[in-house]
Design a protein around this nucleic acid. Sequence first.
DNA 1: GCATAAGCGAGTACAGCGTACGCACTTTGT
DNA 2: ACAAAGTGCGTACGCTGTACTCGCTTATGC
Lengths: 249, 249
Amino acid sequence: MPESTGGSDFRISLKLLWGTKERAPRGPKPTLTVAQIVEAAIALADAEGIDNVSMRRVSERLGVGAMSLYRYVPSKAELLDVMLDTIHAEHANAPAPADSEPWRVRLAWHARQSRALIQRHPWMLQVRHGQRPPLGPNIMAVFNAYLGTAKDIGLEPHETLAVTELVGNYVQGATRASVEAVQVELESGTSDEEWWGERNEFWEEYFDVERFPHITLMWEQGGYDEPVDQFEFGLQRVLDGIEAMLAGR
Amino acid sequence: MPESTGGSDFRISLKLLWGTKERAPRGPKPTLTVAQIVEAAIALADAEGIDNVSMRRVSERLGVGAMSLYRYVPSKAELLDVMLDTIHAEHANAPAPADSEPWRVRLAWHARQSRALIQRHPWMLQVRHGQRPPLGPNIMAVFNAYLGTAKDIGLEPHETLAVTELVGNYVQGATRASVEAVQVELESGTSDEEWWGERNEFWEEYFDVERFPHITLMWEQGGYDEPVDQFEFGLQRVLDGIEAMLAGR
DNA sequence: GCATAAGCGAGTACAGCGTACGCACTTTGT
DNA sequence: ACAAAGTGCGTACGCTGTACTCGCTTATGC
């Protein structure tokens, strides 16, 4: 009996994510695997940006017809889910500091790993921006590692959870900004040089010094001159803020 | 002489953003204004999500043909730029605490304003995720206000700048998570209840307790039971971390 | 008053997208 | 040998952004 059309993509998605896929007893052997499709899609996204990841383009890379992909993946959304989980393996499988290291060192390491992952695959911020992350094994492993580190801080469970979210949220927010330049160059084809020229025009023609005094002052005081690693600066402040919780106990 | 096709959308975009648009000496009066189009597009995005904002849908709301919009806006990208800047007016024009208030109070106020703005217009996280923000007057005003608050902390200029980025990045990263549930319900039509049912199935069938011990422990210790305002928790930690910089001076 | 130039609204069209459907084919169990 | 089930994928539909082009409206210069 055929199931109704709409329904539980979610279950299929879970099967995909966790690899629970029994080989069918009959029928021809599949020429592809889900892993191959996901790999091709990730490579395409890395190389040409997520906007250029279409089912047709992915299928071209694999030398098959566009609709063939739907034998392996229920829809593009599920493919993106699996892509997202798959790249998290890079973080989950990286050699982490020993548990004997101070929590601050370990938490910073995970933060930098998360940041590096986004920098390698900037499109992950564009995917599912407004969705909850897929419940895949690699994302779970990363989350588990974060929790394992945060628990050694010695806070209450609900605080430990909140700290984990805090670090994760900060990393995601902060890395976005630093990735922008690369993204723009890749997708719009505009070089940084061109863009700075245009930006100069903005400052000269539109920016009103009197209307935005603090921006002007910041400029005049040379706040932009000194190159600061914004990510590391913010990360240390976040960790300081966490450490401050321990002071009064 | 007609100008070459490709070229400086950027300048047109700036003209749009800063309202530098001289009325043409001849020709019929426009039936629309850019503001009207932007307003309609924002309303549509608020109501049905950014995915449903197409030039055709926006034009329907205004009772004009789809192509008519291109008399006012060079492309959809520029429209999104102006939309983004326009909603920032809500933050820029909100009554801020007096400059005599402590910087911590004022900075927290701005953070909550930024958060509220995202919650009212969740699509703003989907727009230009990988691009730098448009250089519009309202975004400038908000940035100026952040800087004006941060400068009273009493740090070096480059530190002041970094602190501003830190708070902004945290807010953006943290608010994303809290917006997800609403977004999903709106766009996919799946209710929270349905999703929790599906999620139960995940925990029972796929989640391996031994493989993710820290997640399991967190669950058993009741870390998820106590409702925590994650945003406020993280914000206070971030502010604590900033305050810790002042200790040794 | 009238010709003219310029801006306006919008119909048509095209390339690209995700994907529902259906068909020919291959492999396996009986 | 035959049936059942799964595979590859061609075709098609509705959607998208937008280039092009047309006739129409309006304000200016004479």
